[in-house]
Design a protein around this nucleic acid. Sequence first.
DNA 1: TCATTAAATTGTT
DNA 2: AACAATTTAATGA
Length: 238
Amino acid sequence: MPLETALHERRRPLTEGELLAIPWMRLLTQDERERAATDLKIAEADPGETLCRTGRPVTYWFGVIDGLLKMSTDNAQGQTITYTGIPPGGWFGEGTALKREAYRYNIQALRKSRVAGLHVDTFHWLLDHSIAFNRFVMNQLNERLAQFIAAREIDRMNNPDVRVARSLAALFNPVLYPGVGEVLRITQQELAYLVGLSRQRVNEALNTLQAQGSIAVEYGGLRVLDLGALRTPSPMRQ
DNA sequence: TCATTAAATTGTT
DNA sequence: AACAATTTAATGA
């Protein structure tokens, strides 16, 4: 079932804790927060499920409560290009929501995820009423621009260890993904899909990074020990 | 709550 | 790609 449908069907309100975990919620006044909270809807997405597709009209501004999503497009040759992963705390689609255009990318769940949707009309209402919300969106756009510029650099690197490091640094971005925290819940298989390497190679890279002390590999997740080292990895031998 | 079993994830070739 | 080893989740008394 498409998420858009699922969102309409499940109108259950969010718990207090879930509301506070949403990064922009605490920036709003009581009135604004109540209005946003009433409109907000959550849905579960199963692995592989598509949440929104290129060309479909924008009805919601999406945020990840829990889980992991993948942003991608299919080019003319029919191959899929993955742009980025979206971990908990990440909100996306504000660019297209602003212009009320159609989605320019596909969003798929890499694993079972809980996703929140704010209706575009409410999104615009918040833009019209809250300066703090405007600041949040502006900051969000700016931060993502920086990330996509960094992504171009990552693409030109041939060293897999560095690629994995940089991709991880992006996922641990505290501004874009405040829900991640110290530990990123991601399997090595999921990371392999995002980075575009084999699981074996990702496994090898993770162990190298662990040996360097920038991360700790855990079962079903990764702990960041030195975000700076991930962003600018020291040159490696060979 | 604990022990057993199934499933998921990781490490290695 | 396949396999073994390890960790977690699920089940049921």
